[in-house]
Design a protein around this nucleic acid. Structure first.
Lengths: 276, 276
DNA sequence: GCAAAAATGGAATAAACATTCTAATCATAA
DNA sequence: TTATGATTAGAATGTTTATTCCATTTTTGC
């Protein structure tokens, strides 16, 4: 038997094939399929004997499994698992070490960029794992139902609030950006009603105007959706729904990437909800 | 001989040891040291015979090299190279595949978030591979030498320019944020001189005010540093130094993550340069 | 330039290896 | 229940493996 043309040549395709065919395979082979998906690294580095022991099957079953997937033998299948590891990305420590090594040749500014990239990537990944779909859905529903959305975010959060205002403008969603211009910020909420909503963004040290405005909104029974950094935030206290975003920092400057991704999500989700 | 206590147990330490001792080793062993640093993946996956052939040495030399590093034999050294690959991070495709898998169960809003995360991650990675240290250094030098830095960025780029203004404020760097308020934007550059600098940010479709201001700055011989999206951008034409940032987009909304990381880099780098 | 020591090449070897083969077991349908 | 085909366990096999050993070459110190 030669390797058929349809036999996966990369890990993604092989994984899909194992998932697809895994359930229909005989007992032992399906047992191996499950093990392979759970312990790909062990397949990459192990020997037929060692893997067979770990997966509680006979060595010969591993060869039969490989052949069932279309390969000539186990070694050919293993090569796919190894290739997957070859083009993986260095982990955090390794990258830092590489940077330090290059530090002499690379410019200082470039190192800064790597640092800020790293902080952004980390923050986004972090939020991705914590963000709950239920909270997101509630917030979107609230904002989509609002007549006017008041956007509050000053100082470090102003890039976020100004982006949301820009996006809402493009999407035709009625909104008011509270920018504190002319020191008249507190006037902007005068006409807000419980049928509106407030989207507030603030992080330590919370801008006092933002806190005041959010408190004021809560007193007027205007629903508040907040993006902030901890359960102890004054925004969390007054908000109906709030998101915790922990931005990584580098050189004392916190990333904004995760907050921005969340803000974009909310604006587009609201627009889509309104559209349907 | 048993493995000594000082024998490296992780790749970083082993690498350091190879670098340190590599030069002082005899010819063949130093040859292996160089090969190991250059082709760590081949060490991880290869056999003694196959590696020996690639490195142009005898198999026995590999065992001697391993022992010189403090291990009992080659297999023990190889385990370190394998461990390095085990805790590496999934690459881009793999992460996306994982997201897609989760996507089925998640809410629509959550899918949006994954999309925007993806766009951000990709944009940052992309810029990271393209960004040239030389350009960065030139830009930093220009900005650090400026008496006043004029920051231009409207509409979609306004979050960026407002962030830079915020950061410059915190860092005590004299700047003017041109925000187009009251339609007086063009007045703001009246007093700019060649000893100042302009930091302009704009992407397709380029805001007309931004283009006008940059042209005006160039005419006044004020050095312009631009962040834009292509060589055909009207900003690139007038800028002394410019950065090409290709932001990925999702659902028609382009990311800002890479631009933001670059902006943060520039601000902090300028502050550090001024400080020294 | 010569003796001693270190390093190397390459064959020898035993253990480990992937794979094959066959008898036993299991599932399935008449 | 029984016959049939699929599946499995486990021993057998020939190859590849890491490692050792020793003769040869190269380097070192005087």
């Amino acid at each position: 038997m030669t390797t058929a043309d349809t036999t996966p040549r990369d890990f993604a395709a092989l994984k899909a094939l194992i998932i697809e065919r895994g359930k229909t395979l005989p007992k032992r082979l399906s047992q191996i399929a499950a093990f392979a998906l759970d312990h790909p690294d062990d397949i990459a580095f192990g020997t037929v004997a060692s893997i067979a022991e770990q997966a509680q099957v006979q060595p010969s079953s591993l060869i039969r499994f490989s052949q069932a997937m279309g390969y000539q033998g186990f070694s050919e299948l293993q090569e796919i698992f190894r290739a997957r590891l070859r083009d993986r990305v260095p982990n955090y420590e390794e990258r830092i070490a590489q940077l330090r090594e290059h530090a002499k040749s690379a410019s200082k500014a470039h190192i800064l960029f790597e640092g800020f990239s790293e902080a952004a990537q980390k923050s986004i990944a972090d939020l991705g794992s914590k963000l709950e779909a239920a909270t997101l859905d509630k917030a979107v529903a609230r904002l989509a139902a609002a007549q006017t959305i008041y956007i509050i975010g000053l100082r470090r959060s102003f890039p976020i609030s100004s982006y949301v205002a820009y996006a809402f403008g493009k999407l035709g969603i009625r909104h008011v950006l509270i920018d504190g211009l002319g020191g008249l910020a507190s006037n902007d909420l005068t006409f807000a009603t419980p049928r509106d909503a407030v989207l507030a963004v603030s992080f330590t040290p919370y801008a006092s105007e933002t806190v005041t405005l959010v408190t004021q909104a809560a007193r007027l029974h205007v629903p508040v959706i907040a993006i902030t950094d901890s359960a102890f935030s004054p925004l969390a206290r007054d908000a109906e729904i709030w998101f915790e975003v922990a931005e990584a920092n580098f050189e004392g400057f916190r990333s904004l990437a995760a907050t921005l991704a969340l803000a974009m999500t909310l604006t587009v989700a609201v627009a889509e909800k309104r559209g349907s």
